[in-house]
Simulated scan of single mutants.
Amino acid sequence: MRSDIRVCSDWQTTHERPVYTLGDRCPVCDAPAENSAPAPFDPTDRYGEYRRRARSDGPE
């Protein structure tokens, strides 16, 4: 998934909270901005079934 919204790549050390922008650079500190979307779901994940099973509330 790709998002047009970007977040400052250095926000954890420079800002008190994330700074979001639509540009390529942070408007406050001029650091590069990076994609704010989460990592995509990978259907070829070999261990996904085990992770989902461990998260489930009861036995299947």
Rank of each mutant, 00 (worst) to 15 (best):
S36L: 11
D57Y: 07
Y47I: 10
G58H: 10
F41R: 05
T44L: 15
W11P: 05
S36W: 04
E34C: 10
E60S: 10
E34T: 15
G48I: 02
G48C: 04
T13Q: 12
Q12S: 09
H15V: 05
Y50D: 08
V19D: 00
D24H: 12
G58S: 13
S3W: 02
D4F: 07
T21V: 09
P38W: 06
E49G: 08
A33E: 03
I5W: 12
D10P: 00
D57Q: 11
N35C: 12
Y50H: 12
P18E: 08
D10M: 10
V28W: 01
Y20L: 13
D24Q: 14
Y50M: 15
A31M: 05
W11R: 09
P40V: 14
C26W: 03
C8F: 07
P40D: 14
T14L: 08
F41Q: 05
P38Y: 07
V19F: 03
P43F: 12
N35T: 11
A54K: 15
G48K: 01
E60H: 09
H15E: 00
R2V: 03
D30L: 15
A39S: 12
R6L: 05
M1Y: 09
D4S: 13
P43T: 06
C29W: 02
A39H: 08
R25Y: 06
R55M: 15
R17C: 00
R2Q: 02
E49R: 05
R6G: 01
R53I: 02
D24C: 08
C26H: 03
F41Y: 13
A54G: 04
P59H: 02
P59Y: 02
W11H: 10
